[in-house]
Structure formats: structure tokens, C-alpha cells
């Protein structure tokens, strides 16, 4: 298999924002039964000075391979502090580029991470609209 780059391995050693948030405003759960990766993204929503809703805090819990853990970390790093609209626009390519490219065969892991983030935002909105 193609090996991971140094940036990925460095982040893997110290992934950011790993863990849970008690009583999150939004929770996004994704899992890929075939490859075995499971990923939950927790968000707390706040407001910036312009009054726009932003991701004030974000955490992620992951059971998965090196690519899944580093994509999880990277998606939270990219999303933290962003408005919900901006965060929603984060693509798998953004995650993958920020990681300096995953091995091709691991590309699907970065899809899971941004999926979980989108689901967390959707979860927040659906709760708010209730």
C-alpha cells in the first residue's frame, strides 16, 4: 500500500479536537460498515460579531484507521470558528488537500469526515426548527 505522508503521520500522533461534547447543539453520526470506520461529530453553535451563527466548539470521536482519525481531526480544525454556511461548504477535497493528500485508496475516509460535519449542522438546524 502507498504510505502516508509525514504531515498525516504527525497529525495522527496528536490529533486535534478528539472527544465528546456533553449536550451538543448538533451531533452527526456516520459509519461505513464495510471498511469499519465510525465517526461522530459534536458541535456547539454560537454567534460572531456580525450575529452570524458559527461553530463555536467542535469535537469528534472516531474508531477507524489512520486516515479516518486524521480526516476527523482535520475537518474539525477547518470548521472551528467558521459560520455554519462556510462549514457546510467544506468538501472532501478541502480535507484531503489540507492533509497533503491521503493515499488514493484511503480517499473515502475524508468523505466520512465531512459527511459527519454536515450531518451535525443538519441536526442542529432540525432541532432549532422544531
Amino acid at each position: 500500500m502507498e504510505a502516508y505522508n509525514k504531515k498525516v503521520l504527525a497529525l495522527f500522533k496528536h490529533p486535534k479536537n478528539m472527544g465528546k461534547i456533553e449536550n451538543p447543539d448538533g451531533l452527526g453520526k456516520v459509519g461505513n460498515a464495510i471498511c469499519g470506520d465510525i465517526l461522530w461529530v459534536y458541535i456547539k453553535v454560537g454567534k460572531n460579531k456580525k450575529g452570524q451563527e458559527i461553530i463555536k466548539d467542535i469535537k469528534v470521536s472516531t474508531t477507524g484507521c489512520i486516515a479516518a482519525i486524521t480526516s476527523s481531526s482535520m475537518v474539525t480544525q477547518l470548521a472551528k470558528g467558521k459560520t455554519l454556511e462556510q462549514a457546510e461548504k467544506i468538501t472532501k477535497e478541502d480535507v484531503n488537500n489540507a492533509l497533503g493528500k491521503l493515499p488514493e485508496i484511503k480517499f473515502h475516509c475524508s468523505i466520512l469526515a465531512q459527511d459527519a460535519l454536515k450531518k451535525a449542522i443538519q441536526d442542529y438546524r432540525s432541532k432549532k426548527n422544531k
Partner: peptide, 26 residues
Amino acid sequence: KYVEGESIGGYMDAKGICSSTGSACS
């Protein structure tokens, strides 16, 4: 249980230990 083989291998490698996995994603 609750962990994935490749990440175990990744952290072991970071400590200098070479192992292998029959796990998925590879």
C-alpha cells in the same frame, strides 16, 4: 474491540514496534 487495527499499528510504529494488520482499508 472498539479500535481499528491500522491505527494500533500506526501508534506502535511511532514507538518503534513493527506489526501488521489483516484489517480493512488496506
